[in-house]
C-alpha cells in the first residue's frame, strides 16, 4: 500500500478532462460513495482497464462519467442487464453497477431479482437516498412511510422497500449495507463485495438533503449525517435488540456472505466440458 491516502488517491482516478466540482448537490452522499468505490478498487490493485462501471439513470447515474475506468451510462433501471452482457462477453472484467433506489428497486426491480438469482459475477451498488432526486423529489420505493415528497404531498402511504431483504430473498451471494457516514465500514464491505465471486449487492445509504431532507425536517445536509450516525447500528447488535427498539434503527454490515460460483463461471465450465469431449471424440 502506498502512503498516500484519501482524496489524493481519488484524484488520480478522476477524469482530468471533466469539470469539477461534479454536478451533485452540496452534501450529497453520492460523491462519498464514488470515493469509497475508487479506494476499494485501488486497494484491490485492479488495473483500471479491467474495471467497468455501469450506471443507471438518475443522480447516481452521473457518477460514472467522472472516473477513469471503462464507464457506461445506460438506461433507467437497466444497468444490470448491460452489466450481465459485458460480464458474459468478457468474464475477466470487473463489472460494477451503480444504481439509485428508484433505478434498482422500482423500474429495475426485475433485473435485480434475476441478477441475484442467476448469481452473475457483478457487484451492484445501490445508492439509496430514499427519493427520486434528479427528477425533482418524487417518492421512490425506498421512501419511508409518512414522508412528504412531490408525489406524496400528504405523506407516503406505503412502507419503504428493504433492499437487503429483497436481495437475500432473491438469493444474492453477498449482501451488505453501509452508510456514507460510516465510510471505513462501507469501504470494507465494498472491497469484499468486489472481491467475491458471483453477485454481490451493497446498499449505500446516502442522504439527499435537497429533495428529501428539506421536506422532512432535516434542516441542513449535516442533519442528515447526524441522523445516519444515530440510526445506524451494526447488524450484530441490531439482532440483539428487542423488537420494539428496532423501529427507527438501521442495521448495517454484512447480511449474507457465500461463495457460490458466478453464472459466468458455471457457463464457461460447461463450455470447457464440451471442448474436452470434442478433443476426446476427435481422437
Amino acid at each position: 500500500m502506498s502512503e498516500i491516502t484519501g482524496n489524493e488517491i481519488i484524484h488520480q482516478y478522476l477524469r482530468h478532462n471533466k469539470k469539477f466540482p461534479h454536478v451533485l448537490c452540496a452534501g450529497c452522499g453520492h460523491g462519498i460513495v464514488l470515493g469509497t468505490l475508487i479506494r476499494s478498487i485501488h486497494s484491490l490493485g485492479i488495473p483500471r482497464d479491467d474495471v467497468v462501471v455501469v450506471a443507471g439513470i438518475g443522480c447516481s447515474g452521473r457518477l460514472a462519467v467522472y472516473v477513469d475506468f471503462n464507464t457506461i451510462h445506460t438506461t433507467h433501471g437497466r444497468a444490470l442487464t448491460f452489466a450481465t452482457g459485458i460480464k458474459m462477453a468478457n468474464p475477466k472484467l470487473n463489472v460494477i453497477t451503480i444504481m439509485g433506489d428508484g433505478d434498482a428497486l422500482s423500474i429495475g426491480g426485475n433485473h435485480l431479482i434475476h441478477a441475484a438469482r442467476r448469481n452473475i459475477g457483478v457487484t451492484a451498488l445501490v445508492l439509496n437516498n430514499n427519493i427520486y432526486g434528479m427528477t425533482g423529489g418524487q417518492s421512490s420505493p425506498a421512501t419511508p412511510l409518512g414522508s412528504t415528497t412531490m408525489t406524496s404531498p400528504y405523506g407516503q402511504l406505503d412502507k419503504s422497500f428493504d433492499t437487503v431483504e429483497l436481495a437475500k430473498g432473491a438469493g444474492a451471494n453477498y449482501v451488505a449495507r453501509g452508510t456514507v457516514f460510516h465510510v471505513r465500514k462501507l469501504e470494507k464491505i465494498m472491497t469484499e463485495a468486489i472481491a467475491r465471486p458471483g453477485f454481490s449487492l451493497v446498499e449505500a445509504i446516502t442522504p439527499c438533503h435537497t429533495q428529501y431532507g428539506r421536506k422532512n425536517k432535516y434542516k441542513s445536509p449535516v442533519d442528515m449525517y447526524k441522523w445516519m450516525k444515530k440510526a445506524a447500528i451494526s447488524v450484530e447488535r441490531y439482532e440483539e435488540l428487542p423488537e420494539d427498539q428496532r423501529e427507527d434503527r438501521l442495521p448495517i454490515g454484512v447480511f449474507v456472505a457465500k461463495d457460490r460460483p458466478g453464472f459466468e463461471e458455471r457457463y464457461f465450465a460447461m463450455k470447457a466440458e464440451f471442448q474436452k469431449k470434442t478433443v476426446k471424440g476427435g481422437k
Partner: peptide, 8 residues
C-alpha cells in the same frame, strides 16, 4: 477527507 463528497 473521507467524508468530503467533492474530494476537496
Amino acid at each position: 477527507e473521507l467524508h468530503c463528497p467533492d474530494f476537496a
